[in-house]
Computed example of a mutant assay.
Amino acid sequence: MSDAKLFSPAKAGAIELKNRVVMAPLTRNRARAEDDAPHDLHVEYYRQRAGAGLIVTEGSQISPQGKGYAWTPGIYSQAQIEGWRKVTDAVHEQGGKIVIQLWHVGRISHPVLQPGGVDPVAPSAIAANSKTFDGTQFIATPTPRALEAAEIPAIVEDFAKATENARKAGFDGVEIHGANGYLVDQFLRDGANKRDDAYGGTVEKRMRFLKEVLDAVTGAWSADRVGIRLSPFSNANDITDSNPQETFSHAIRLVNTYELAYLHLVEGQTGGPRDIPQGCDLAALYALFDGARMGNNGYDRASAIEAVESGTLDLVAFGRAFIANPDFVERLKRNAPLNEPDRDTFYGGGEKGYTDYPTLAESSLAAQ
């Protein structure tokens, strides 16, 4: 089914895509250690994968405070803008489209990764039973410091500045990282947000930070260049909610009012089972959004084709398959065998396990 709708052109807001296969955001920990800037290795990595209808970059911190792992790239400095500009130019030269994922990790960090060695920040001083990578090993995340209400506008402004920087860097748009237990998700969920001010308590108040971020980002770039990623039923990074269906129904209704380019949902557990909690309904959440719907988590060729043919999804995001297969879309179209990813090289390192996976054509030549 190389003529399947999955391989046909589509639009996500103002972004025109040559196919409906999306490269999901994938943290690979290879930014320059001294300034968290992407460099030539990133240029080649993303260039190789420009066959995707859309590339969503690895999460990129909007500020030094937003950093949660060693060697992740940022989008707040001139060096980072210049590094990303080389990436976007390379992707565009190959006929691809690319958006950057805007990231603030909140409590999923550690003082060794924070400017001045201070505690990470979060809606409330509640530790996550999680770990982060400090450049040497995985270490437990500590109890964060609860943000003062007066501090929140500066973080919101960082989202706006990061969006402006993304435009300067030549991206086709931005994706707000509202998933997987990071800062936006922490404000949304009552397991992490115990505030009793305007940013917490009722489900409506827990939406306030998300609304301010949406206002800031769409104020810096038109909404049809903005997407958002949410993970309604995932407990990644020890995030919980007493009623995720209600919480994310409110969140998606809010998001829908902005007429964004797309809604990107992690279906089930991040990188794990696709199971939905009893009494919850993923289809009902998608139905609340009028723009392009992007699904992610555990899709294979058959399920991706079916999801798009049926109209359930407009776009399907794949993660690990893109790590090991730079020509993944071509392999998918031809139903060709896939390279197996080397898990030992997922996080950190150089070109090994990053830019040295063979294409189908290269594999065929090697076999002759």
Rank of each mutant, 00 (worst) to 15 (best):
E151P: 08
G96N: 13
P144Y: 02
I239E: 08
I126P: 10
M294D: 03
P9Y: 03
L332Y: 06
A302E: 15
Q245Y: 01
T163S: 11
V43D: 10
P9G: 02
G319P: 14
A251S: 09
A321K: 14
T240A: 08
S2H: 02
I252S: 03
G13E: 04
L260P: 07
L102W: 14
G59I: 06
R253L: 05
M294P: 02
T312V: 12
R320T: 13
G135D: 13
G271P: 05
P144G: 06
L282W: 02
V255E: 01
G268V: 09
K161R: 14
A150S: 15
E212M: 00
P142Q: 02
T218F: 07
A37Q: 06
N339D: 11
R85L: 08
F289D: 04
A198R: 14
R331A: 04
Q368M: 13
P358Y: 07
R225M: 02
S109H: 03
D158K: 09
V156R: 13
D342R: 13
F322C: 05
A361K: 12
H264L: 06
T257Y: 01
K86T: 01
L313Q: 14
G181A: 07
I108L: 12
T359S: 14
A261C: 06
R107K: 12
G95P: 10
I176T: 06
P64R: 09
G83D: 01
A216K: 00
A304E: 14
T218V: 06
L265I: 12
F248A: 10
F138S: 06
P120H: 04
A150C: 03
G295M: 04
P64I: 12
G96R: 08
F233Y: 15
D36S: 15
K67C: 10
V91M: 13
Y258C: 07
E306M: 08
I139D: 00
E330L: 11
G83K: 03
D327R: 13
A287K: 12
A12P: 07
L263G: 02
A14V: 05
Y182A: 04
V118F: 06
G68Q: 10
G13K: 06
K5D: 03
W71Q: 11
Q368S: 13
S310F: 04
M23N: 08
I228D: 10
H264E: 05
P73H: 09
E212F: 00
A31P: 08
Y357M: 09
I15D: 08
V105K: 03
G349F: 09
D89H: 05
G173C: 14
S231W: 07
V174S: 00
R195Y: 12
F322Y: 14
R331W: 04
V91P: 01
G181W: 11
P142Y: 09
A317D: 11
G83M: 02
Q78F: 02
Q114Y: 11
Q186T: 04
V329E: 11
R208A: 04
P277T: 10
G181E: 10
D241S: 09
I155Q: 10
E157C: 10
D327G: 12
A70R: 07
T143V: 15
A366M: 08
A216F: 00
A307V: 07
R107D: 05
F171Q: 07
D158M: 07
L6G: 01
